[in-house]
Structures are given as structure tokens and as C-alpha cells.
Nucleic acid binder design. Structure first.
Lengths: 257, 257
DNA sequence: CTCCGGCCTCACGCCACGTGAGGTGCAAGT
DNA sequence: ACTTGCACCTCACGTGGCGTGAGGCCGGAG
């Protein structure tokens, strides 16, 4: 009765979202050899083969070279739960990294809006793929005392454009109104301050990216925590960073409720 | 004074966390040609070059082929905010995909703990890289009526191992105690039910992965929403899925407060 | 009986680099 | 003055993970 045992290669490819060639390749290198062949020499994949393929594609997606994938899957003292556990860890780690990158992009965007120049190291903070301590120390040690390094350390990055200046003007106008409001004695969680915070958010949305209230409060935290941004606001007038922070938080709360 | 203009290739490589060869390659293919050369023919990268490199690595990290990266970066009517906006979108999209994968792994782990067999399509739900509708329909249309497909549709996946059976026994013991508790009339948010929920969580932690309270409540939701898991619990006794859900939620609340 | 769709096996091509091999320029130590 | 050493240079071939035909086999439908 059960004349057909196992799935043919095309079907497996369709299931897994890969090409037939890929399956051939995995067979060639011995990573996934179908457990049987039909009379005509056609590959027949069993359910167990499909499971293995699923694992393979998973590790591949996370950037493992196929050779290592084979080593992982053929490890005799690694049972299914070992793999699931590891996969879960890898995924959360990966998500964490991407979230960090997203945060770094946020900071980069903010740096641009405010005209803060980043040092070369800061520019690549996004990619935390090297050991941070060792790298930072070593780099400073190796390059920290050369002329090129010292002299270009805080050089202007020359983002000079046309509408860039227009945006900056807008930004400064907002800053001026902020200072005026604060000097008038208006509270940070008052109507006017919240409106100004909302205007700030809209400003970002219009010119840069889709800044949600959640992201906006994240930025507010950064204005307090990150020395660069903190210094920027404090340079306007002492206490401004805190004031802006509170206004943004209040505004987000208003929008959320 | 300023005799040294620009960073040498080794320094740039160290900053960016790439090899010198990579920078040479980008120069060869015209993706990133340093804006100057020293007297001795050495590459000198300007700050603007570093910015471009940062962008390149960003898009590369997200899987773009270098040719497309060049196209994106050289696009004349794409200003900085365009890129930042796009990068932000790409990142959040990617994070979303990974989160989905993590969820799918959760389900796979749960399926294993309960001995539910997945159909071939279900096994690859993790990788949402094909158009779901078109794919699902088309696959069924093309393969749905072949013998191989029908007959192996719900075949046992033969996970038969030794300690796998032991775990299953543990699991069944837990199930029995759950049913007994519920029949005794104990409330789902009572002490005993919560203890049983906690035991369930510990069980997962010990045998599978680090299941936090947050994840655990996520699983509880799934027990209600996903037909497969729902059916599993309901097959024990009607209302069990809900009972388990409530117990887990109550337990998480207890732990959280 | 032919046609067609899916399968097969070579075998070469491609991208994004890795990895030497062999040579240059400069600065520091002997 | 001379070697040592380091960072840089330019070929140029190798590698991983497939893509992309070329040419042929096989079983069912028209």
C-alpha cells in the first residue's frame, strides 16, 4: 500500500523555502543526505530528515558556517533540548544586538539633529562585534598618540547642506521657545510644556523617522544619561535637560491615557 | 601643521571591526574609495569616508548585496534622513522577524514536550520568508493530492529515545495531579494551583530552556489561542486549557509582586 | 508514441572576501 | 650607515555557499 515513502526534493524545497540546488548541495557535502532513494535514484526525505533540515536552516539563519552546523547537529551528546535551549539563547542574544543597533541609530539620528559630531569610535559603536574593553583600550594605546589621531579627533564632519541649515534654524527656534517657557516659570508637566514636547516629537517624525511616544521617552532618558546630549541641553541653561525630560514624559503620559 | 590628513587603512579597519582586505575590496569595486592617498600611495580615509563606511556596514549587516548598497548610497535623491529612516524601519522589521522565530521556537519546544507532531508545513513556519498565502495554497494544490503527501501527513516522527520517555512520564504525572486538583474544586488562582503552575515552569527550565514568568504567561496565552495546544489540554478534560492558563497567570502575578 | 514535468549528474560561474607572496617607505635601535 | 620592524602596497589564487545552465533519464497524460 504505502508505495511512496518520503518526500521528493522539490516538495521539501517548497516546504522549507529553499532551492533544490541547496538540498543537492547539502547532500554533496554530507550535511543532509536523504535517508533513502527511490528506484529511479530520486532522493526521498523522511520526516526525521525534515527535522534535521529545519535545524540546519535555523543555525544557518543565525550565521553559522555549514561545517559548524554539521558539528553541532552530529554532536552525539547533544540531545534535542540542548539545541532548543541554545537556539533560544542565540535568538534572544541576536535580538538584543539588533535592539542595541536600533538604539545606536537613534543616537546617530539625534546627533545629526543637534549637530553633535561623533568621534570615529563613536561612529562604529553600532557594531559591538569586537570585544569592547580590549578593543577600546588597545586602539587608544596603538593610535592614541599619533598626530593624525589627535588632530582629527574632534574635527567638523562637514554636513553642510542647504535644508540642513533650515532644519537647524527650526530646531533653534524651538530651543528658544523652550527657554522662554521655562523662564516664565511654567511647570514641566504643564499644558504648554507638553505641547512643546509634542512639537519636538512631531519635528522628529517629520524630518527623521517615526518616533513613537515610547521611543520619545527613551530619548528623554538619553538626554539625562548620555553626557554628550546632556551637555548640549545644559549648555543652553542649567537644568534644561531635566526640564525637557520631564516635559516629554508628561506628554507621553498624556497621549497614552 | 596639519601634515596628516585622514586615517590610514589599518586604523579604519580597527575602528570598524573589519579587515584591511575588506577595505581594499571595497576600494577595488568602487564602493568606498578613500578620498585621498598619501605621498607613498597609502589610502587616507576622511571623516566623510568613515560615515559612508558606517552606512555600508549597516546595510551589509542587514544582508544587502554590496551592489545594492552602492546603489542605495549613491542614489542622488536620498538624503541622510532617508537613510536613517530606512535603517530604522529595516531594523524594527528584522527584530520583528526574529521575535517571530523565537515564538516559533517556543511552540516547537512545547510541541516536543507534549508529543504533538507537526505537519511538514508547520515545521517550517519559523521561516516566514515566502509569501504565506500564495505558498500555502500553491503547495496544497500541487502536492495535496499525491499519495506521499496524504500518507505521511500525520506520521509519527519517531523521537523514541530513552530519557524522552522518562520526561514524558514526568509530564503525565504532572497532568494527573493537575486534573485531580481541579476536580477537587480548588480555584485556578489558589495556592495549590499556582504551585503546580510554578512546577510546570520549573519543569521547562530544567529540561528545555530558561522560561521566565513573562514567557510562561506567553505560553499560557498560546494554550488558549493555538488550536493544537488547546486541543491537547481540552482532550484531558474540557476547561483544562483555561484552568492552566489562569493558574499560570496567577502564579506569574504572585512572583512579580 | 510523443510530450512534459520533475528528477538526475556534471561542471562552470559568482560574490565577498581570506590568505599568502613579494616589494616599498619610514622610524627606531645598534 | 645599516639593519630591523611595522604598516602599507599590489597581484593573484583559494574558499564557502550556493546559482545557473547543459544534457539526459523516467513515468504518466494526451
Amino acid at each position: 500500500m504505502n508505495t511512496s515513502a518520503g518526500y521528493p526534493v522539490g516538495q521539501v524545497a517548497a516546504f522549507a523555502g529553499v532551492t533544490v540546488r541547496t538540498l543537492h548541495h547539502y547532500d554533496e557535502i554530507g550535511l543532509l543526505s536523504p535517508s533513502a532513494r527511490s528506484h529511479a535514484g530520486h532522493r526521498r526525505y523522511s520526516d526525521a530528515d525534515l527535522d534535521r533540515l529545519q535545524q540546519i536552516l535555523f543555525y544557518r539563519e543565525l550565521g553559522f558556517p555549514l561545517e559548524q552546523v554539521a558539528a553541532l547537529l552530529d554532536d552525539p551528546d547533544a540531545d534535542p533540548r540542548e539545541h532548543l535551549r541554545r537556539q533560544h539563547e542565540l535568538l534572544t542574544a541576536r535580538i538584543g544586538k539588533l535592539t542595541e543597533m536600533a538604539d545606536a541609530v537613534q543616537r546617530a539620528m539625534e546627533a545629526r539633529t543637534m549637530g553633535i559630531n561623533l568621534t570615529p569610535e563613536e561612529k562604529f559603536e553600532v557594531f559591538g562585534d569586537y570585544d569592547p574593553d580590549r578593543h577600546a583600550e588597545e586602539t587608544r594605546e596603538r593610535w592614541g598618540n599619533t598626530d593624525a589621531y589627535e588632530q582629527s579627533q574632534r574635527r567638523a564632519a562637514s554636513y553642510t547642506k542647504e535644508d540642513w541649515l533650515r532644519i537647524k534654524a527650526e530646531q533653534e527656534d524651538w530651543g528658544a521657545r523652550l527657554v522662554a517657557l521655562r523662564e516664565s516659570g511654567a511647570p514641566a508637566d504643564g499644558e504648554a510644556a507638553m505641547d512643546l514636547a509634542e512639537e519636538h516629537r512631531r519635528f522628529i517624525v517629520d524630518h527623521y523617522y517615526d518616533c513613537t511616544y515610547e521611543i520619545h521617552t527613551g530619548l528623554a532618558e538619553m538626554y539625562l544619561a548620555d553626557p554628550r546630549f546632556n551637555a548640549f541641553y545644559e549648555s543652553i541653561a542649567p537644568g534644561t535637560a531635566r526640564y525637557v525630560h520631564d516635559a516629554i514624559v508628561a506628554n507621553a503620559r498624556r497621549a497614552g491615557a
